[in-house]
Amino acid sequence: MSNLITKYFPFFTDREVPHTVSARPDTGLYSAKLGIWLFLASEVMLFGGLFSAYIFLRIGSEPGYWPAGLLNVPVGTMNTAILIVSSITVVMAWAALKMRQLGKYRLYMLVTILCGLIFLTVKLSYEWPAKFNHFGVFIKKEAASKYEDFLGNKHLQEAGQNPRWEISGHLLDAPKGSHYAHQAEHNAEHFGHETGRHDAVTPAEDDYVIQLDAVNANPSDKDNDRPHFWPVPMSTKLAVISAADVESASVFAPRHSTYFATYFLITGLHGLHVLGGILVFLYLWLPFPGGTKLYKTNPEHLANRVEIAGLFWHFVDLVWIFVFPIFYLL
């Protein structure tokens, strides 16, 4: 197979360039190690650009327009732990190769790949979709007094907290022509099924009906002033909001707010990095010419490849170490 590749795709084969495997004496580095660190330096600046956008937008946001406590903290914590475990196993995989223990290498690498896959699965099949089915409306300031029951700004002012302008939950009815109509219908059916209330409210044509999050159901409850660790179940209370009082309305998607915009962009880009890492690990784990097959001819080369792929993986972990608190906790 490798002969075929070299024959028809010679550009996929290695040129004999010095220091591909062994270190150059005066720098003490083999080239790929230097290369991956340079790449990571550029990655620092890439995520640095995104984080500086986060800082810039968050500091610049008007009080009450930077949501908190909307993400699932236990799930996020679990995912963080999974990434950390994968970081341990990948460094163990490298060490196993260095000690020429191919079996252990295969095992540790498999665990790493599985951890990466679990992380992505949780993110894509649970965390993101849950957000896309959550809905929020920002109330115009001049209309806020009408919705004081859901916003609780009087209480927040007394508690010395930022005001609240958003009412969120599950959308049960959307104004005519809204492209959330389908989602609202689906939610309303579900809501009716759960509670047995099928005609809870009779909204006007351009009203939003929202099954409220706990925080909007009891906005004056001191318990709701700070985010909770375990997600609080939604209330069955409904709010009817006139479209005329709404500044902006959206599901918890990138367009919802600059908070979700940065959240989805950074976690999305991070997710792509996780995916890239998994693919590289798979390549190194399977018997490809550049993967475990390389062990027979040049185990040191394979160890080097695992080391640089590992460095990339640790960096992805390192980015998550910052992403987790700034979006989930703070």
């Binding site: 914590t77 950390i84 970081s87 341990i88 060490a95 985010p227 987790f324 703070l330």
Partner: peptide
Amino acid sequence: HIAAHLGAYIKVGVGLLVLTGITVGLSY
């Protein structure tokens, strides 16, 4: 040389998990 470091990797890993818990705790 690497075999001597394996313990350190596990210790650091456990330390990271503990610190993750601490981060979550401190945020409340």
